[in-house]
Design a binder for these strands. Structure first.
Lengths: 210, 210
DNA sequence: TAGATTGTTAATCGATTAACAATC
DNA sequence: TAGATTGTTAATCGATTAACAATC
């Protein structure tokens, strides 16, 4: 189950879609799916699907298709979704709260393990069994709980400072919702989730003809 | 200022980054930027920057660089950011509230013009001068206010139904935060913002070596 | 002038699509 | 068997990178 070749970002994106749709097929009770089943559900050419799965080390059977359980296991393994990785949220405003309450954590193989904020009126309150902690505790809690990922939803002025702290504490990944380019070593995986991008893209795509 | 050629998604993404960084340069008082300035700030090859700007119909001056104000105007025009387009949010839970309060609207050239929810305890309350309206009013309000874009943050079970309504009302774009594939005609631009994707990507990128 | 930087073409690289033999 | 579907190679397409003459 070694996977030496680096997958392109677009291939990763497709595989995420495949997983989603295949799990849906599974819910419907199907045991096998074909590349056309997957492709037509997603608007992707079946050959493209086959080649992606081929790179994954698939094992489809001509005329039958791919075994659903095996395919799901392969993709979940590739994405490391079955290991519950501790994560934290830093910045517990509206967005932090929304993310904390979302069901995305388990889908991504993470577990929300700590929440931090620097507002004294929030620190100490409870959310889903977690006590909101002060910013000063970030380093220690990440270390002792082995937190691997930090979601950053603080004001722009504090983002780099917070990122430095979590990086020093040994976090491997940062999900950055702040519209600021974080300066981080290559060892930390940073995913920028600038919300304005989605809007700008839509604005572009619906721009009136001139 | 006609732009016949279709830009690739990655090119659009880069141009969004350029805009961001160029506006930052502008704040610092600079009048000209070179392709290397932009490229090195973003980790993109300067030749790539030049080619993108070339496709935009740029007008740089050898040895001097590109005029900041002109470049900003070109990109903002391309993305149609200077026309304030009315938008609405449907589903006013934590996420809807977080998005409503974000400063992304003006950056994307939109203006939050209406909020909808079906919870009677929320309908009628105020948020930033807007009265939260009931789901039943969606069609009429979109029509009368000329709303062009709808942000959908409702439960998964209601997403398709809501999308159908806004599409019938004439919305041109949907920003879908629900992890559900919406069935929409090609005339509607749909941007899926599945939050789990960011997590899965990070999980993949930090997967322990095997 | 000399040096820096653009505009733009050509070369490379990678990803997608087409195709079809292998196989169940 | 015949037909459907995979595995896998080759062809195409597009995007990135390299390169360099033009120019300020």
């Amino acid at each position: 189950m070694v996977k030496p070749k680096r997958l392109s970002r677009s291939c990763v994106l497709r595989l995420e879609l495949y997983l989603e749709i295949i799990e849906q097929f599974q819910k419907e009770g199907r045991q096998y799916v074909t590349s056309s089943d997957i492709g037509s559900a997603l608007g992707i050419a079946p050959g493209n699907v086959r080649q992606d799965l081929f790179g994954l080390g698939s094992a489809g059977r001509p005329k039958v298709g791919y075994e659903v359980t095996r395919l799901i296991a392969l993709i979940r393994d590739l994405f490391d979704l079955d290991r519950e990785k501790p994560a934290c949220i830093i910045g517990f405003g509206n967005l932090g709260r929304a993310l904390a309450g979302s069901n995305m954590w388990s889908r991504g193989g993470y577990k929300l393990a700590a929440i931090f904020d620097n507002d004294p009126s929030i620190v100490g309150t409870d959310f889903a069994g977690l006590r909101v902690r002060s910013i000063a505790e970030i380093f220690g809690v990440i270390k002792t709980q082995g937190i691997e990922m930090a979601v950053i939803t603080v004001p722009a002025s504090a983002a780099q400072e917070v990122a430095d702290i979590v990086q020093n504490a040994g976090v491997k990944a940062i999900w950055n919702f702040v519209p600021v380019r974080l300066n981080m070593p290559e060892t930390v995986a940073v995913e920028n989730q600038s919300l304005a991008w989605g809007l700008i893209t839509l604005s572009h795509r619906t721009r009136p003809a001139q």
